[in-house]
Simulated assay, not measured.
Amino acid sequence: MTDPFLVLLDRDGTINIDKHYLSDPDGVEILPGAISGLLRLQAAGAVLAIVTNQSGVGRGYFDLETAWAVNKRVVELLAQHGVTIAHSAMCPHAPEEACTCRKPAPELALECARATGLALTSSWTIGDKASDVQLGRGVGGKGLLIAASPAQDFGQSASCTDLDAAADFILQERGL
């Protein structure tokens, strides 16, 4: 195993199927490739953390407790397969609130770095939106975009179809 490194994971559309303002923990479905990719990253020394924007809270679609319940269900489903999430950080604000925690602002990543004791400069951020890639780059790490079809260039290190392909890329980049 190599030195530990931080992998910041977007939640909806990256780990689990994005169901547009998911507010029912029973509706969580893990995406194909997520478990196998995360297990391989974890075995190679990755410390996994979730960073998620949940604007449904700020827009009044559901409360913060509900958002955390959905997140808890994602973590539980992953744990059933041996995937450990070291920390979760969430922005509950709507985009127009101009908070300091909504990705791509660095606050969620900084929280995960403090919680895990790992540097962001050697981190990877994986997500399905430009803000995920921008977060990774903004904190001095690298960003990978999950995209089912050819993606726009947001400065990502690569575009991958799922977390399994993202694991392939990261492990190759790390020489593993």
Results as ranks from 00 to 15, higher is better:
R114Q: 15
G13V: 01
G127L: 01
R40T: 06
Q134C: 01
A151C: 09
S88K: 03
L118K: 05
G56L: 02
A109R: 12
R73D: 07
D132P: 04
L38S: 08
N53Y: 08
S23V: 02
C112I: 06
A147I: 01
G13I: 01
E29F: 03
S123Q: 06
D10Y: 12
W124S: 01
V70N: 01
P150S: 12
F5D: 02
P106F: 12
P150D: 15
A115M: 05
L8I: 06
A86C: 04
E173T: 08
V75M: 11
D63K: 03
V28H: 13
E111A: 13
A130N: 06
A79S: 12
S88N: 09
H81K: 14
L48M: 07
A34I: 03
L39W: 09
L77K: 07
P92D: 11
E97I: 00
I126A: 06
F5C: 02
G138R: 05
A44G: 14
C91P: 09
Q156A: 05
P25V: 00
I146C: 10
L108Q: 11
P104W: 11
A49W: 08
K129P: 05
V74W: 04
P95H: 06
S131I: 03
A67D: 10
I30T: 07
V70D: 04
C99M: 12
Q172H: 15
C91D: 08
L38R: 06
A46D: 08
L22W: 10
Q134R: 12
P4S: 13
S131G: 01
K19Y: 12
V28Q: 05
V57K: 07
F154V: 00
E97V: 00
K19Q: 15
R102N: 03
Q172W: 13
L145F: 08
G136K: 01
S131W: 03
T121N: 10
